[in-house]
Design a binder for these strands. Structure first.
Lengths: 355, 355
DNA sequence: GTGAAAGCGCTAACAG
DNA sequence: CTGTTAGCGCTTTCAC
């Protein structure tokens, strides 16, 4: 009886700690199929490098044994964990819900899973959580971040990354067409007969906020619109009610807010102060989140293709992982559209129709 | 010159594929500190088994080199990945936002990270994503699931699991006090003078739905309340507007809905049909999601401590991972409270106060 | 208390 | 095309 070369000892029948059964490994399959372990490995990781017949047999045996390749073990030599990180600044913000949905579904289609990092609006918490997540993920989508550009660029050195709604030098990003969106909003107001509008600013750290404000300022002249600006305010309903108290400063009968939550808070604050929306005050938001159509009147808002954003970001990231050039080309920009609801009207008169 | 025993070859200066720098390993630290690799390992995984002085020196060297223990490598022999899975049935449902926040923060405090599984309301997608996630995670929190009890129990065999808002035999769970919550709601309506109420049911598959309906039925008698039931409906705003069309069946001037989205849809549908809320119809919801206070009138609702739910579930899971008995004791049940807003009033007359 | 050695399960050269 | 052989970085007996 010739000695087998380096025979693996039969795995002791001792189940894994915790009493859970130990799943079959590549070795179990190899033994059962009468081939070398590496052949089994190849069958699953490098199909085509193994003859059709053998592969078929191995698959059959594997299926019967219930073999599943262990991603942890695969990850160690290759670094391919099949998980990508998705960072949001505040999971509680409905704005992210659709983005996550889009990202998640694209990720799943590719056989990956999503590691969620909720920054909880904190630079520190975000950094800590991301640091912990980083070694486990192949790449990261930054859907919202409280970190500085330089901190972002640092972590981008460690893993491929794509940034959503923010333009970080040298990093691939996907943006929405804020400029066009703002033009639609301002054009709508001007068309209604408004001659002046105040912009209600969101967080200073927000890249989108800067872009939106500049777009308004640049487009206003051509529309015969005077513009003012108040803020910054936290991008929440509470922030909006706070902003409502400062609205008197310019007394404009129309406002465009950084986002929908701010706009909603603004409406409520203004209404509480006795103003009628839209008769006395027209308000426009951004993002079209859940809730924008729930308020009374419904909120006119610039809608971004949230789900597509998430999807696009993930696809771009996966392409990078698949070997596309790390940092390529100009940002992908997705279209915006204006959703008309009841919160806007000609100054001084109610607008018929939508309500 | 005596031969070193099994000298590790100096790591080739070749950086990892992708051009990213290879982080320092346990061996780098060991060499720099003049100790054996196993000692370094012990220093980080089994402190106390190494003398204070050595440990200190190793930590210093490690810090200087920027060493971080590689969770992937640690996971392979131990199974401890430091990630837990969080499953939700629909990330788009604002109900989950707070739960996720609570879970996420508890997870992070423990040095873990969260793998998010969004079922997208699909049994199949959930199962697929969860299956992919399972080998990577130490345990799972099922915050919402479209899977059957038996499927759940199957996956619970593979990993420790705690279930939220659902009672699965033999699995640890955390529930909210639906019975008490429903009593508050029904008592409130009865106190207002209502004599009959219809329950607007959510998905049949929802455990909470059954519990709530039964609680209403059982408590109604003692309050002199007649109860009816319509449904099931999808637990969405659209579902609620659909339900509004069926409300005429019993003509009750008060409804309790399975959840807030349903209640909101109901209000809108009823209002569109010419009913006034609350004068002609009182409505109460469940969950107190974002949006419940945005609608007009504000929605009276049974609030669950969403964030605490997530936190508690995670803590229980972590305790199990730390060695607590796998399936222990009765479900943890968290308190409910009634949030009064403008959507409820005495039958036929507006209710003063909140609006 | 510390070192040596044997893996965890899989992949990746390198031979045939 | 398939088998053999080293590891990936860390943990964990087992000796000393």
């Amino acid at each position: 009886m010739p000695p087998e070369s380096a025979p693996r000892p039969e795995p002791s029948p001792t189940p894994a700690p915790g009493g859970r059964p130990r799943p079959p490994t590549i070795y179990d399959v190899a033994r059962a199929a009468g081939v070398a372990p590496s052949t089994v490995s190849r069958t699953f990781s490098r199909p085509g490098r193994v003859s059709a017949g053998t592969a078929e047999r191995i698959r059959a045996v594997a299926a019967e044994l219930g073999y599943r390749t262990n991603p942890l073990a695969r990850a160690l030599p290759t670094g391919r964990t099949s998980v990508i990180a998705l960072v949001v600044s505040d999971i509680t913000n409905p704005f992210y819900a659709e983005i996550i949905r889009g990202a998640q579904s694209a990720v799943n289609e590719a056989g990956y899973v999503v590691l969620l990092v909720d920054a909880q609006e904190s630079d520190r918490l975000e950094r800590e959580a991301l640091e912990r997540a980083l070694p486990v993920v192949e790449g990261v989508v930054l859907a919202g971040s409280r970190m500085s550009d330089s901190a972002i660029r640092m972590t981008a050195k460690q893993r491929p990354m794509v940034v959503l709604n923010r333009d970080v030098a040298d990093l691939p990003s996907v943006l929405t067409d804020n400029v066009h969106g703002m033009r639609l909003a301002a054009g709508h107001l001007a068309g209604l007969g408004h001659r002046s509008v105040t912009y209600v600013a969101g967080p200073e750290a927000s890249w989108a906020d800067g872009t939106r404000w500049r777009a308004l300022r640049d487009t206003a002249g051509g529309l015969g619109l005077r513009v003012h600006r108040i803020g910054p305010y936290p991008p929440t309903v509470a922030g909006g009610t706070a902003a409502a108290r400062d609205l008197g400063r310019y007394g404009d009968p129309a406002v465009i807010a950084y986002n929908d939550q701010l706009a909603i808070g603004l409406m409520r604050g203004a209404q509480a102060a006795g103003l009628r929306v839209p008769q006395d005050l027209s308000v426009v938001g951004f993002d079209n989140v859940f809730g924008a159509e729930l308020v009374t009147p419904g909120l006119t808002t610039v809608a971004a293709p949230l789900r597509a954003q998430g999807r696009t970001a993930v696809r771009n990231l996966l392409a990078m992982l698949a070997g596309a050039r790390p940092y390529g080309g100009p940002p992908a920009v997705l279209p915006s559209r204006l959703v008309l609801r009841g919160s806007t009207a000609r100054p001084g008169r109610p607008r018929p129709g939508t309500g």
